[in-house]
Amino acid sequence: MDTSALSAIRPALFERPSFTVGDRVRVSKRAPIGHYRVPIYLRGIAGSIVRVIEPAFVDNEEEGYGRNAGNKRHYYRVAFAMPDLWPDYAGSPNDELQIEIIETWLEQI
């Protein structure tokens, strides 16, 4: 059997996750009209990928417009330090917020 066929496989656009655990990312600061599922309090904030959610899921924001078979992209569990989100945060500086964010909202730092 020709094993080079296996090593020559090329994944399609968006098939593989763009980020991996430990990557530093920033939530896009854009403010679109219409529907979104990334709370405003996260916009422009930097965090770390702590988990890649497999498999890819339909983009919630597209689903909101009835596109049940809309594009699938990876979601990531991203950790943010509370003091990065809230300058006057009153708890311990080690406190964290974690949340799932779809790839379209994340920028590599």
Partner: peptide, 8 residues
């Protein structure tokens, strides 16, 4: 009507 359409 999917869940996201309901939220919207």
């Amino acid at each position: 009507i999917n869940t996201e359409e309901k939220r919207k």
